[in-house]
C-alpha cells in the first residue's frame, strides 16, 4: 500500500457513505448496488425503474467523466483472461441476488445498522473471497 492510499480510501469511503445516507434519508431505501440493478433485471423493481436508472446512470457516468479528465489514465487491472471474468461475473450476479446483497448493501448499509444478516454475509463473502485468492495463488500461480 502506498502511504496516501488509506487517506484516499477514507475520503472515498466517506463519500460512499454520504451517497448511502442521501439515498436512505431522501428516498427511504437501502443503497445496494446489486439490489438496484437486480430489481431491473428480474422485474421485481419495475415500479421504481426510473429512480433505479437515475442512480445507475450517475454511478456509471460520473466516474467515467472523472477518469476522462484525470491526468493519469484510470485502470482496473482486470485480468485479461475473459473466461475467468465471465465466470466471476456470473457468480457475483447469482450470489448477490441469492444472498440479497453485496458489499454496499450488506457491507456498508447492513453493518452500519448492526444488522446480523449484513454482518454475517460480509464475513462470509470476505472469507470466500480470501479463500479464492489463496486458491488462485497456489494453483494458478498468481492473481
Amino acid at each position: 500500500m502506498i502511504e496516501a492510499d488509506w487517506i484516499w480510501g477514507l475520503i472515498g469511503g466517506l463519500l460512499i457513505g454520504c451517497g448511502g445516507a442521501v439515498y436512505l434519508l431522501g428516498n427511504g431505501r437501502i443503497m445496494g448496488a446489486s439490489g438496484i440493478v437486480g430489481g431491473l433485471v428480474d422485474g421485481s423493481g419495475r415500479s421504481t425503474w426510473v429512480e433505479r436508472i437515475s442512480f445507475l446512470a450517475a454511478l456509471i457516468l460520473i466516474p467515467a467523466a472523472i477518469a476522462a479528465l484525470a491526468p493519469t489514465p484510470a485502470t482496473t487491472h482486470l485480468t485479461e483472461n475473459l473466461w475467468l471474468v465471465g465466470v466471476a461475473g456470473l457468480l457475483v450476479g447469482l450470489g448477490t441476488r441469492i444472498g440479497n446483497g453485496c458489499t454496499s448493501g450488506h457491507g456498508v448499509c447492513g453493518i452500519s445498522r448492526l444488522s446480523p444478516r449484513g454482518i454475517v454475509a460480509t464475513l462470509v463473502y470476505i472469507a470466500a473471497g480470501a479463500l479464492m485468492v489463496v486458491v488462485l495463488r497456489s494453483f494458478v500461480g498468481g492473481i
Binding site: 448496488a33 454511478l59 487491472h77 465466470v87 457468480l91 448477490t96 453485496c102 472469507a127 470466500a128 492473481i143
Partner: peptide
Amino acid sequence: LIIGAVLFGAGWGLVGLCPGPAL
C-alpha cells in the same frame, strides 16, 4: 444468505470486482 454470500465472495475474489465498482 450463506450460499449467496459464498458464491458472491468466490466471484469477487476471482477477479476483484463487485457490483458497485463493476458499474
